[in-house]
Write a protein that binds this DNA or RNA. Sequence first.
DNA 1: CTAATAGTGTCTATTAGACAGTATGTT
DNA 2: AACATACTGTCTAATAGACACTATTAG
Lengths: 277, 277
Amino acid sequence: MEKVYKSEEEFLKHYNAKDFDQLSMTADILLISVSSEEVNNYRKNSKKMMSILLVKRSDYPFKGKWCLPGGFLNPKTETLESCAKRVLKKETNLSNIYLEQLYTYDAIDRDPRTRVISTSYIALVDKNRLTEMINPNACWFDVILIEEKNNIVDITLTNGDETINLSIQKILREKTTDRYSFKARKNVLAFDHDLVVLAGIERLKNKVNYTDIVFNMMPEYFTLGELQQVYEVILNKKLLDPAFRRIIKDKVVKTNKMKTGEGHRPSVLFKYRNKND
Amino acid sequence: MEKVYKSEEEFLKHYNAKDFDQLSMTADILLISVSSEEVNNYRKNSKKMMSILLVKRSDYPFKGKWCLPGGFLNPKTETLESCAKRVLKKETNLSNIYLEQLYTYDAIDRDPRTRVISTSYIALVDKNRLTEMINPNACWFDVILIEEKNNIVDITLTNGDETINLSIQKILREKTTDRYSFKARKNVLAFDHDLVVLAGIERLKNKVNYTDIVFNMMPEYFTLGELQQVYEVILNKKLLDPAFRRIIKDKVVKTNKMKTGEGHRPSVLFKYRNKND
DNA sequence: CTAATAGTGTCTATTAGACAGTATGTT
DNA sequence: AACATACTGTCTAATAGACACTATTAG
């Protein structure tokens, strides 16, 4: 027998959320950056690599496994994005990081404790901004290889000591072209974070072509060569200089600063051109 | 004082989800279709329009307001997608509909009852498949106008009797180009569904160019003219015939069937070319 | 001078846009 | 015959890809 309420106020007064099935949510963050690997030859530019932040779990479940930084949402006070920001601040001491919602993961058994649904976020940062890592269990992993064949993507992550091999199958959904369901062939990271890593890298790869998202990973001043390297790392392919400069020229502003002392011709430093200016 | 567990099994045995703050989730569905509006001239082709399904709320909160079909997730048994499927089946009696996760909406006050986070889905359907509408409160609304100026998007929805005017402000996020936050200038639909409608239409508009998603809205056999009309409705602009046919030719297969009796030259019927065949 | 990257000019290939024309049903 | 859409040929404009060349520094 349903009760009839006279107004929304009256209805809300009698509403008790605990009468209904509830669940927990987390926000997980894929923090992506591009790091420079020094080269022994004084003439050569440093080689760039994509890197992501992983945390070693110190508690059950998945104790000892690597996972993305994340934390439970406080439903009374937080949005998922503010929860993600809180977690990032805790792990890296950084605020003002670019954040973008990626996907909501909700497989019933993704967390062995109870039903936990996780909304994942991509975070991008210029690695030079990172001064201190608060959490001693957090560590950058270079993404040294992404190869794809037979719809299987293999990603190798390494932090120097440890190497993690992710292997994810892409399942083509009908009538979508480029829309895939992902399925980890084995879950190497905790929870379903293998999938989040791939989805995030793919999202970044995609958006780099039609947004200015990449400048969130750049310092204030950069050379076009450095910028091109970041594009190349994300797109995982070599770009031709003239074509790259044609495409990028409206997005940047030339400054009168130069980068010198590199053992070869100095390069002009550019800044991001903010369209709102 | 934290307890130390010897194994994941032991940890899980002592884990009680109710010790933690929980919340409710819903899945909301933006069901999009393209409908044909008959034209009085026997020679002319019918005009096509994008339409979406709305439901009039019969209960508090937002009683009497239109909203997207949606329902609470059963955390014990359902994924968000299966929840969305259940709701769609209930409202339209359709299964096997294309579903794609859109975005997770989590503003703290988006539901006046309690903290409810909603993951929205886009569903696409060929309107000819819709035979019966189970829910008498559900109704198709034509999307008759999307205009944009000064970063304000106006969408007019109409079902013949009622007209709903949505007005949403796009807030450009720095360094993203084409990435916007949306903010409804007034909430005309229940909850934050104004935003979902716009985000869904934008997503469709976007994906139409680089996926085969549009074929989920087409019947098995269609003419290239009809297909072009659907593209035009989604992209909200006229396309040139030769260019359209160039682009589409690899995605379709010519059949030996014809569409005749239209008061003008008959048209060849095509089918979708499934890449997996 | 040399090694290495910085930066540019220009040709070519590919793709998108535009327009005009022909084709073929129904009434 | 007339109308409306179906369908195609071809020119032009814009963009992407490729390559070769010049420029400039530290050592």
